[in-house]
């Protein structure tokens, strides 16, 4: 049992990388529209609490989470998202937890539902062995119209969900990487995995989705964070 667990621990990052590298038929980003619906004069997107973790990969393959990095990454990511959208004439508002317990429970369930939808998109849209034949030809995912409650409570027309997990190689590890590359052994380096999705709060439809998976990029500094967000928000409807 403990052997299995140990093997699993070691295998997990490699498998994750293998998944990312595996022949993915569809790479996204996916968008069901090129433009946002600007019927309402004052278009607002609510940024759902971003799920971002930054850590450092040490030589042994351990990810030691860095709270300081994570805190600043969240700020830089939020700022970068704000300016990205401002340039496209769109207002980003922060998510406010409702005071009413009933509304709070509804929001909670909607966020969990989004997790299930986002996870399903990652699994079935991007991972070829588990593709769903009925979804082969078009990108069609929805949370359903109960999201309207979220729109009303937050005063927003769309909701933007962001998940980013990023890790950086420590110096010792980079040294090992160079050696490894020379003899042809691939040691997974810092890998950046994340996704963002935009949900229409009138219909529940996921109208834009992008998975970010690349081995470079940095959220620790403002400029680099902006570059990361630019990549993440590729093909975002205007």
């Amino acid at each position: 049992m403990i052997r299995f667990a140990a093997a699993l621990k070691r295998a997990a990052p490699v498998i994750a990388l293998a998944f990312l590298v595996a022949g993915c038929a569809t790479q996204g980003p996916f968008a069901t529209a090129e433009k946002l619906d600007r019927r309402a004069a004052d278009l607002k997107i609510v940024l759902m609490p971003p799920d971002i973790t930054l850590s450092e990969l040490t030589v042994g393959g351990v990810q030691e989470v860095n709270a300081e990095w994570t805190a600043s990454a969240k700020t830089y990511a939020q700022q970068a998202l704000q300016s990205f959208l401002q340039q496209r004439n769109t207002q980003l508002v922060a998510y406010k937890e409702p005071e009413n317990a009933g509304a709070g429970h509804m929001h909670e369930q909607l966020i969990k539902l989004h997790e299930a939808v986002g996870g399903s998109i990652l699994l079935h849209q991007y991972f070829q062995p588990l593709q769903l034949p009925t979804k082969k030809d078009k990108f069609s995912w929805t949370l359903g119209d109960e999201v309207q409650a979220l729109g009303r409570d937050e005063g927003a027309d769309y909701a933007l969900f962001v998940h980013i997990t990023d890790s950086y190689s420590s110096p010792g590890r980079v040294a090992a990487q160079i050696l490894g590359a020379f003899i042809g052994v691939g040691i997974p380096g810092g890998v950046q995995v994340g996704y963002a999705s935009l949900v229409d709060l009138r219909t529940g439809e996921v109208i834009w989705f992008n998975r970010l998976a690349r081995a470079s990029g940095d959220l620790r500094k403002p400029d680099a964070a902006r570059a990361t967000i630019d990549v993440l928000m590729s093909k975002f409807p205007s």
Partner: peptide
């Protein structure tokens, strides 16, 4: 989400 992904992938592979 990454956790979901890794665990799901491993579960499926194994």
């Amino acid at each position: 989400m990454k956790r979901f992904l890794i665990l799901a992938t491993v579960a499926l592979a194994l």
